[in-house]
Write a protein that binds this DNA or RNA. Sequence first.
DNA 1: AACATTATTGAGACCTTATCTCAAATTAAT
DNA 2: ATTAATTTGAGATAAGGTCTCAATAATGTT
Lengths: 146, 146
Amino acid sequence: MQNSFVQEFDRFLQEKKLRRTPERFKILTEIKKIDRHFEADDLILHLQREKIIVSRATVYRTLSLLEESNILRKFRFDENHFHYELHPKNSHHAHLVCVKCGTIIEFDDQELEELQARICREYRCLPVKRTVEIYGVCAKCRKKEN
Amino acid sequence: MQNSFVQEFDRFLQEKKLRRTPERFKILTEIKKIDRHFEADDLILHLQREKIIVSRATVYRTLSLLEESNILRKFRFDENHFHYELHPKNSHHAHLVCVKCGTIIEFDDQELEELQARICREYRCLPVKRTVEIYGVCAKCRKKEN
DNA sequence: AACATTATTGAGACCTTATCTCAAATTAAT
DNA sequence: ATTAATTTGAGATAAGGTCTCAATAATGTT
């Protein structure tokens, strides 16, 4: 089950006639070890710590491929770098981001699924994807403030 | 009515003991002339065309102030620059962005208002703001493709 | 009206994140 | 093993925005 990402990526690469290089798989394997959300820099640090030597450029290129193959999903919050998240396929969820501490909480959004469909129908638009972010002060930070 | 932005900004500056400089008001006045959405570069170009000489830094600094005073709202779509929009106060709307041509359609979202409130209640979070973007292929682009 | 105080401006340096370039290395097909 | 085509790494470059600091200007005080 956990390994299915590797298989999926493998299939994707073959299909697109791209090469199945050790770098690409090492990167995906490292991503699997990281919990949920991560940033490119996190990944690069993790790789360095594990003495897996891959260039920054290759990391970014592989992230693009993983996004293209729907193994990874790319998000952007109010910062100016991206966040990535594994396995978004069946979890088209949204985010609750704390403006104080940056904690990211995921929540499912079946309602949003319908909203997207409705809005797209209304504007005769073919839905591709959506991003929904709610910003607020999380419970912990609110306690601290008191 | 249209002038209320200037008054509002004026009040904000006084309240915060910030200075009411000509640059700041020239920038706001120019923004009012631009239709709805704009990017920092658009604004800088507009100012240049009108021979209003204000430095890039001041433009960015003023945009921040206008955001802080809730006169302007800042958005980010999939690109890596921001979009700005005047008068978001009573129009907490969401966006439908065409992935082909970049057209941005606004839509109101009373449902989203409730969703935000509900999610925040659930996580004991104090809501601050939200961004909702739906990406798709717009009607025009779909026609072209056929 | 002049002064002092403090904020603001402008020019360009700088920062961050990500992408591009191109020679060298590697994959995959034959 | 050879060849053709991709991929990699190192560093240059790009894009967008922010920062620095001396010079300038706004405000409050006399």
